[in-house]
Design a protein around this nucleic acid. Structure first.
Lengths: 235, 235, 235, 235
DNA sequence: AATGAATGAGTGTTCATTCAT
DNA sequence: GATGAATGAACACTCATTCAT
């Protein structure tokens, strides 16, 4: 063993290389799997490729995850867990107006999630929710509900302060969230194609996004909204 | 098409069911394929299932499309083509303010596309763009560019009329489009899961969406936007 | 087509080669599977080898049997079904003494089963019963129970006729059956090894077997049986 | 063996558990392997399960046996060796009639072999003889030949004493042996299935078995055996 | 044109075996 | 010696594609 006999077991650290690798394996496999699932899709990703990208053999993957499906579930759990928590802390003690708070939330979230590989999880979830019904409830509980709650709280705070008019909270929350999600999806669809297209700058877009939505929801409603004229089924 | 030009469609009479079915085959196969590709993903959809849903045998599918890949491409071509055209007509002769025009565009688009099976094409494109690089250019040319142009034109029209302030057109266009796309994606991911969740009403959401964005972009900018404070990499 | 056009469809028979092959496939696969399962064991037999021996590809096997397990079950059903029926007919109208009847039963059974590939089914059943609990009940109902009943009936007939003394029917039945089964098992274990060993002649062995057992059960019991002396647990 | 010859087994005292375990390892592994090979079959038994049942790790198994095949061979050698020896001693000095001698042999053999895990070896041999041709010669030399010789000697003794008529020795020997083997096989096939079936009591069955066979072979042959009537191939 | 039986390359998963610790 | 993490060959099963009918 490499463990020095001169020092007692206390604080000796992670011990042998073998041991250290073993402890890191699950993480390494999850990272590799996320990348490939996002890039190629779950079905189109071969388990052997996941293993190879993690630097191990096919068999080793199965020492840690009993099937490709379970690997996917672990990837989802791993990457959805951290999505919301930070936001709650930010909102907690914030002093400032709604625009500043929303901008802070969005920029932070983008740096923590949107601009990292974890952002790919939305593509995976979107694609596989139909094939893995578990994901729906999981996603609802872990992401949608807390996410909605967080933004609802922010908007309500603005209304209570007289800053915003009493907009439809539920719809406005989604108006805030949807563009952020689309930016994540874009990063893993058109983005990697390197087309000669003009691209959004995420942070600039976030600023514009927040500005316009907050302004649009500000007191007083600038103009009476005339009703739309298209006839359609009112399902 | 094999249909003889000598006989107009009118007064053709019963036209043997056999013949009519045969001519409808490619369409029926595309419809079946879209449904299944959207629902299960491209890789996870078996060609035989597509054929079965279209009411033909496995072999027949290959009479019309030489491979599953080509079938996918046909599905994408078929469904992306119709996405934009109608919009241009609407904008052409419209008289009314920006909010009304945008609302009309969005509601129409939702009824024509979002609320039909064709909306699933966005999920397919999103998922498969990585595996089929052709799609990127195709999607760019057929959807993104014309779509951006259409909404840019509408916004520019509002600015020119003094109705809107000179917002960042590029970003605002995406702010308008992204929530619509998310509604489409939702219809084919969480939507079918029938969770006990509160759901957006599409048309109501569109109204709120258009109201807030248009109001947020209206003259004059209600408040000076203070800059965001989070320190971050300016990539 | 091979079908002669000179004769109308009526009574034309099984039609095309394709069709004829399809109808024969299940049988051909069962025969191939029995051979290989007997020879190598179930686990040690590769499905591809079964297919190859039946002259088809791996995939074709799965058109007819959804898994290797189901193939095994079909093999067992196929080969156990016919095991007993003939015996009952023989016993029905037989006139003659017990020895003659038993000899007829055994020789017939040997020719119909023991001396055919079907005899291997006993090896398979023996080996796999532990892994496929279904087989136990199936084998009990389809083979053991009717087999016991058949031989019990024959012995009872001999006792009723005063030919045999009232031996323990249950045990004597097994004394009759067991050596027959061992001959089957031998055919598929040591038999194929072609050792320079003296081999039993099945029919001669059956004669000796029946002679000795019937004589041993004949009236009157020749000698009083003294009890065995070894001390042992009487569980 | 690594056991030092300098210290006799007697008075070695507690002899570290470690040491004792180490010396017992091969035996423990053979016992575990026999159990599993009998229960599940050779191919279907995982080496790791053998190791686990013996209370050691996978790697340790390979310290003692270089492959799963060699382990099987060791299991067979180990368990076939002891099958015959005791019988010879019994026959040697026995005074009494043939029935008593056979009954003693059979009951003893049942207690020593049939009623112990070693009886499972017959199932293994039967199953694997095809895959391991070595076994055939080994089994022939170690079991069949000595077994035949033993029973032949007993029958010849009875004939010489005028107790039995000059039956076909070779066939009668197998008539004696086969039911015993079937009881062993039964113990490891149908037996563990716990079906609601009537079961043979081994010792009672042995008594009936020996009684009937010895009576059937006794002087004089009670009836002239008429020949069988079924026409069949005389292969 | 339409069928569906047949194919075989491809992939998820297992497990005997090795070897660094 | 003992361990158990790691390997990769092997195998069950799938499915896009072909082609005889």
């Amino acid at each position: 063993m490499k463990k020095s006999a001169a020092f007692p077991a206390v604080a000796t650290g992670p011990a042998s290389t073998r041991r250290r690798r073993k402890e890191a394996r699950p993480q390494e496999l999850l990272v590799a799997a996320l990348d490939l699932f996002v890039e190629r899709g779950f079905k189109a990703t071969r388990s052997e490729d996941v293993a190879a990208r993690a630097g191990v053999s096919k068999g080793t993957l199965y020492l840690y995850y009993p099937s490709k499906e379970e690997l996917l579930k672990a990837v989802v759990r791993e990457n959805l867990g951290a999505l919301i928590n930070e936001g709650t802390d930010i909102v907690g003690g914030f002093e400032g107006d709604t625009r500043e708070l929303l901008a802070l939330l969005m920029h932070t979230w983008w740096e923590r999630i949107g601009n990292t590989p974890a952002s790919g999880i939305f593509k995976v979830i979107l694609t596989e929710m139909g094939n893995f019904p578990d994901f729906a409830a999981f996603y609802m509980d872990e992401v949608i509900s807390p996410g909605r709650a967080l933004f609802t709280r922010v908007l309500q705070r603005g209304i209570d302060a007289g800053e915003l008019r009493p907009v439809n909270l539920f719809e406005t929350v989604h108006l805030l969230i949807f563009p952020m999600l689309m930016m994540c999806l874009h990063r893993h669809s058109l983005g990697p194609c390197h087309l000669p297209m003009r691209e959004l700058d995420p942070h600039s877009f976030i600023d514009t996004h927040v500005d316009i939505v907050v302004n649009g929801a500000r007191q007083p409603a600038p103009v009476a909204a005339t009703k739309r004229t298209l006839n359609r089924k009112t399902a």
